[in-house]
Write a protein that binds this DNA or RNA. Structure first.
Lengths: 233, 233
DNA sequence: GAGTGGTCTAGACCACTTT
DNA sequence: AAGTGGTCTAGACCACTCC
């Protein structure tokens, strides 16, 4: 079976989400309706919806319905911001400064990002965690996918909410590469630490629901009181 | 429905694995047999087996059968050793030195590990990656669960294979906390770097198939040529 | 009470692996 | 050819939410 029926159901739903026909937070047709629309049995539609739930694309609630995953500041924080108190408690990052610039993409950005863009928009910010300046962050997105985002400044703390609500890009997955580096003079200044203090450098490539690499992000974290937490399985 | 039928199927299979009745790599009864044994329909047994596969407890192969997940050196490396070349390629860690000691548990170990053990066994090792001394590792396990492991030295590079094959503990999940720290004098010596070089410190708590915390591990990595890679979703 | 997802059944057929 | 998991169907009943 080259193309299972449930896959066509999945493709249909994803296409409707990507096209904007189904909005984040919006309700999908019921299992029965969806099955009838596409011409499969209710069990097959059900299987597709369960797989979509497993991929984080929809959320199902007994007695209520099936809804397109909405990237809220909370869920965004929980899933994609892995810095935690040493006991695992969530920290609320606040913005100290923000600079948004439109510029030519460098080689790496053009190679990694979807569409091999010539122009990108860079969002550079410094964050404070628990009142301590703790993170320097630079997010780079293709200018064509996110045109005009530079005019939305100041941007909210959770960028992925903007990507979704203003540009229809639902970030579902990210790959990160983590190393320890000494703070440069400028970095030390911004983070209020001694030069050469060990920092976590996290480089991230974020992918949306269509599997497109839509953001390249580079973060530097102080880890004197906080830690990067992750679960492996 | 307080206790779905498929959950009793799952519990039955997990119990058989934990008891040693089903060995890692061994084949489970077919969907039909399992359903008949437990007295449910084949579809229900199927759902349970699919959930077990999703949790990584079994592996299913069309036309062959369903098998208990075996922790091979390769899968162990792939899942639980996240240090990679900068391009994502897997590195093969080699052991340089090993010290295994049996000692009293400290407060943290007694609190975190399953059973609140009084005695633990500590396995301290230094690893070389691509010929460069790159990791200092200390694994601490409860002495009662792993009695005699100190007499198995030298232990293989992938400890989780020993945990499984000799002690029936299948590690499925681990939680890690990652920070950047300066190398102490001794650490710098062992890793052949300058004192105060930034290192990644990774603290891990590993859980087995029954959800027991069976290992506390502390690793220090050089990240001048390698990086810790992780996927978020 | 109507509508939703969650569980469970019984059976059919397909695709793959092994003998 | 026999046995396995993979897909698909049709229908039943339950648990929950909302009106």
């Amino acid at each position: 079976m080259a193309h299972p029926l449930y896959q066509t159901v999945i493709d249909t739903v994803v296409a409707r989400i990507a096209s904007g026909e189904l909005l984040p937070g919006g309700m999908l047709p019921s299992e029965t309706q969806l099955a009838a629309e596409i011409g499969v049995s209710q069990g097959t539609a059900r299987k597709a919806l369960m797989m979509l739930e497993h991929h984080g694309i929809v959320r199902r609630e007994q007695g209520r319905g099936t809804f397109v995953t909405a990237r809220t500041p909370e869920s965004s924080l929980f899933n994609f911001f892995r810095l935690r108190e040493r006991d695992g408690a969530i920290v609320r990052p606040e913005l100290i400064s923000e600079h948004v610039t439109r510029r030519a993409a460098n080689e790496v950005e053009s190679r990694d990002l979807h569409g091999g863009p010539d122009m990108v928009i860079e969002i550079s910010r410094v964050r404070s965690l628990n009142g301590v300046p703790s993170a320097i962050e630079s997010a780079v997105v293709p200018a064509d996918l996110f045109s005009g985002i530079e005019r939305r400044a100041p941007l909210p703390s959770a960028l992925y909410v903007v990507y979704q609500q203003a540009y229809g890009c639902i970030v579902l997955r990210a790959e990160e590469s983590i190393v320890a580096v000494p703070a440069s003079r400028e970095e030390a200044n911004e983070l209020d630490v001694a030069e050469a203090t060990p920092l976590l450098k996290v480089e991230r490539l974020a992918y949306d629901v269509l599997g497109r690499a839509i953001e390249r992000r580079r973060s530097l974290y102080r880890t004197d009181t906080l830690a990067y937490m992750v679960t492996l399985d």
